[in-house]
Nucleic acid binder design. Structure first.
Length: 885
RNA sequence: GGGGACUUAGCUCAGUUGGUAGAGCACCUGCUUUGCAAGCAGGGGGUCAGGGGUUCGACCCCCCUAGUCUCCA
């Protein structure tokens, strides 16, 4: 049975049991502390914990998941994959153990004709938590499983909790027996390779307290609402049902594996190391495909870095298989074709996905080339030193600084007949890990407690009236002062206000929160910030300007009209700039983040190179033409699939409800899912002026722009600047550029001439200086103070010329000058003088010490300086003394 | 979030106890020659990423900022 079919059967089955089918959430987790969606229940956490009331009593999903903790194990075992799909059914205070077990049994063992999987009941084993007799009796009841195939296990295996206070409870797991060929008898307790876990049923029925680890905590009591959370590994069931050996050989993965074999000319199943490499390629390419599909782009940190590792490890594995040409185009196409039955959006987005993957492949190939040069040098050095081993720090430097993978280093070193100090490398890696971990621990002390909001959220959502009006009547439902529930807040205090309804826009979707006031008779609150701490709940952070605010009070929310207009202009401008970017650069220039507030907007987007000035102008032009076009801006609600067929751009990393809001500018010209506030027509944006373009890391760029009156003011200020320049340069602005270039050129010529004149003027003094030479111990000595000079270069040139004039007589020149009010000297010696043991460097040291400074140089030429100009004569005497000694 | 490396002529890059910034290619001029990266001679071209500090003196040492590459979490 094809994987896509198992998936569809699952959804159909649970829909038939009254479950709401929830589409897979993005791999990009909404929870910022999680890199990715790592389990099927992640999108349902707020409902499980009771923070947000569940919109449905029971739900089912097939969730895309990525886990890279065990990335090193991929390909070596049957169980580790970085991308997998988790089938789940969930109950939020609705059904409990009995139904959960019955559904699971029915779906696994029911006939294929009835839409189930038709597995042989004799091959299924179950485990339960040691004290959970209730589950055992249900299993006996509904499934008639013999006691021999039910095993009790402890906290470590069969008790679930988040690791923190909150819901917890026992689990029951279902295993599939692959037969005696795969291991020993005795059920999952004995052998988890023969008995494969396929489904975990979690019964959340208790509230856990403080504690550490998996088994060291206290149970506080029963939960008021008991939940069911189950997860069936789709890949595991698929590989068992397809009669293959592991998850790399199922229909959704195998084609890429075969392609890796074909491209490298190797046979799958022949050499263990090569098999692992082929599986790595098959697994990683699929994970990368799905991540890019969900909008992740390669980067140096966070999610992007995980993606980069997957892509680079794929290239590396192919190299080790002997393929060093670009291969992503064929591999990704094959993976896409294997996955598109379940995820049709991969086909429509494939151009963008492939472009992203290939760009990373190219940059990595460049990195490898650079690393190879360095490695070759290092290996030559090792050979030259007579050693047989490349040091651990050299291998680490290659890996850490040049991004050159360690196993390629090992391979290339081996070809050169050398070994690598692996232990040294490993310990350096461990050091780096410890550094990063220690840092992460330090920064983690910021987990905010949201429980104070859950009581308010339980009463319902805050109604947002701000799309239609700037002011609205409301009632104060709650106050939070210093993180705690409060009844009143007095003048001068800062408090959070929860209302039943508000016209204030809370910061989201990149748009800054509204400014304004909340007022009532004799009371005024200045709104400082507006946030949505919990989905559906709006909290206003306010300063009590006058009077006192109390729970139950009737108030009016008044958004500052000027502020809001600016905010609308900026947010609409963001959409227009985004559309212009995609029009000019192509559809892969997808927004990855944005921020806007009155007068200003910035937009981060996926792009690999800096934008040229011409491209920036073009984007600015397209943007402002769209503004001049007076396009209608509208917002309407529709279902997510409907929005997708409209071609609306969904911003990755955001999660959307069943009903989404689509904001259009000029109909299809720009369509984005967005909850922000906008102007009514594009012309109201006024003006957009790009002020900057920069990098936010490899593969991601940022544009910044001023919007509306702010844009005008900035341009106006620049115009004034040009006018002032024009005036001081005495040239009309059209000729300003030319005039400036000309002036700079003239200045350069004049400086050069001046330098030449000064040099020749100094050169005229040479005969006079030679004539003034004294003689010490048979060697000539010239010393003079040239007075004020511009640079030490002149001094040096003259000293050098003087020395040349002396030819092969023994002579020393010591020239002094005052440069920038400090005494400087240069000493030059002829070859003959040096043969007599006269050293310029030593003489400079003697003289500069007297001048109150220091100096040095070589035997032939040296320079130095000091602080005290009046000591020059004394310095000359000191040199003469040294020559006489 | 924490590390490491890099930024020098139009391009590719050298440049150690801190003491006058270089090479190859490209460019300009002249000669020679006219067959595949032509040769010879001469020449122009540099805020050594930007800013600050230490020093008599910084491409070099220290600090900050920006850009680029890279590893770890």
């Amino acid at each position: 049975m094809q994987t896509a079919e198992i998936r569809q059967r699952w959804l159909n089955f649970f829909e038939g049991k009254g479950h709401t089918v929830v589409p897979s959430a993005s791999l990009i987790s909404e929870d910022p502390s999680l890199l990715f969606t790592v389990a099927g229940m992640v999108p349902f956490i707020p409902y499980m914990s009771g923070l947000v009331p569940a919109p449905y009593p029971r739900a089912t999903s097939v969730q895309k998941c990525v886990r890279t903790l065990d990335i090193e194990e991929v390909g070596k075992t049957t169980r580790h994959g970085t991308f997998f799909q988790m089938n789940g059914n969930f109950s939020f205070g609705d059904y409990f153990k009995k139904e959960a077990i019955a559904y699971a049994w029915e779906f696994l063992t029911g006939s294929k004709e009835s839409g189930c999987l038709g597995l042989d009941p004799q091959l299924l084993w179950v485990t339960v938590f040691q004290d959970d007799d209730e589950s055992i009796s249900i299993w006996r009841d509904v499934a008639d499983i013999p006691m021999e195939r039910i095993q009790r296990r402890g906290m470590k295996d069969n008790y679930w909790s988040t690791g923190q206070p909150g819901p917890a409870g026992p689990c029951s797991e279902i295993y599939y027996d692959r037969g005696p060929a795969y291991g020993r008898e005795g059920g999952p307790e004995a052998d988890e390779d023969r008995y494969i876990e396929i489904w975990n049923l979690v019964f959340m029925q208790y509230e856990r307290g403080q504690g550490t680890g998996k088994d060291n905590f206290e149970i506080l009591g029963e939960l008021p609402k008991k939940n069911i959370d189950t997860g069936m590994g789709l890949e595991r069931v698929a590989f068992l049902m397809q009669g293959v050996e592991n998850l790399y050989e199922i229909d959704q993965v195998r084609p890429v594996l075969d392609l890796a074999a074909q491209l490298s000319g190797k046979t799958y199943g022949a050499v263990v190391e090569d098999d692992v490499r082929m599986r790595v390629v098959a697994d990683h390419v699929r994970s990368a495909l799905m991540l890019i599909g969900d909008g992740v782009t390669p980067a140096n940190d966070g999610r992007g870095y995980v993606l980069r590792r997957l892509l680079r490890r794929s290239v590396r594995a192919m190299r080790l298989l002997g393929v060093d040409t670009p291969i992503f185009k064929i591999l990704f196409t094959a993976s896409k074709d294997a996955m598109k039955a379940a995820y049709p959006e991969l086909e429509t987005d494939f151009e963008r996905i492939l472009k992203t993957a290939i760009a990373e492949e190219e940059t990595f190939l460049r990195t490898l080339t650079a690393g190879t040069v360095y490695l070759d040098e290092a290996l030559d050095a090792v050979k030259a030193s007579g050693s047989k081993q490349l040091a651990g720090d050299a291998a680490f430097l290659l890996h850490d600084t040049y991004g050159f993978p360690i196993d390629l280093t090992l391979e290339i070193a081996e070809e050169a007949g050398l070994t690598v100090d692996r232990d040294g490398f490993k310990s350096l890696m461990a050091e780096q890990r410890d550094r990063a971990k220690a840092d992460a621990r330090e920064k983690k002390l910021g987990g905010t407690d949201l429980s104070v909001y859950s009581a308010f959220r339980a009463k319902g959502v805050t109604k947002f009236a701000g799309y239609e009006e700037l002011a609205t009547g409301a009632e104060v439902l709650g106050l939070i002062v210093d993180g705690a529930d409060a009844k009143h807040a007095k003048q001068g205090q800062i408090a959070e206000v929860i209302l039943n309804e508000t016209s204030f826009y809370a910061e989201s979707g990149g748009q800054d929160s509204d400014a304004g006031f909340i007022v009532a008779d004799g009371m005024q609150l200045e709104v400082l910030d507006v946030q949505k701490p919990v989905k559906g709940l709006i909290s206003h952070k306010v300063l009590v300007r006058s009077g006192e605010v109390s729970v139950g009070q009737k108030v009016t929310t008044q958004v500052d009209a000027d502020w809001r207009l600016g905010a609308c202009q900026a947010h609409s401008a963001t959409h227009v700039v985004h559309a212009a970017l995609r029009q000019v650069l192509g559809p892969s220039a997808l927004q990855s983040g944005s921020y806007n507030k009155p007068g200003y907007m910035r937009l981060d987007f996926a792009w690999t190179q800096a934008l040229s000035l011409e491209t920036r102008s073009e984007i600015e032009e397209v943007t402002n033409l769209a503004i001049r076009g007076d396009l209608a801006v509208s917002a309407q609600y529709m279902s997510l699939p409907e929005a997708k067929t409209w071609g609306a751009v969904a911003l990755f990393g955001e999660t959307y409800d069943e009903s989404v809001r689509v904001v259009q500018v000029g109909g299809p010209w720009s369509r984005e899912l967005c909850g922000g506030t906008h102007v009514a027509r594009s012309s109201q944006i006024g003006l957009v002026s790009l002020i900057g373009e920069s990098s936010v890391g490899s593969g991601s760029r940022r544009v910044e722009a001023l919007v509306g009156i702010e844009a005008f003011r900035a341009l106006s200020a620049e115009r004034a600047l040009v006018a002032r320049l024009s005036e001081s340069m005495k040239a009309p602005k059209e000729q300003l550029e030319e005039r400036l270039a000309q002036t700079i050129e003239e200045l350069k010529v004049a400086q050069r001439k001046l330098a030449a004149v000064q040099a020749s003027q100094l050169a005229t003094r040479i005969p006079e200086l030679i004539a003034s030479a004294k003689e010490f111990k048979g060697s000539k000595f010239v010393a003079t103070n040239l007075g004020e000079l511009d640079s030490v270069d002149d001094l040096r040139t003259l000293a050098s010329q003087l020395r040349d004039k002396f030819g092969d007589t023994s002579a020393t020149a010591a020239l002094f000058a005052v440069i920038a009010e400090k005494p400087m000297l240069v000493v030059a010696t002829t070859i003959t003088a040096r043969q007599h043991g006269i050293k310029a460097g030593a003489l400079v040291k003697v003289a500069s010490a007297i001048l109150g400074g220091g100096g040095g140089g070589k035997d032939d030429m040296a320079q130095g300086g000091g602080q005290d100009v009046s000591k020059i004569d004394a310095a000359v005497v000191a040199i003469e003394g040294a020559l006489n000694a």
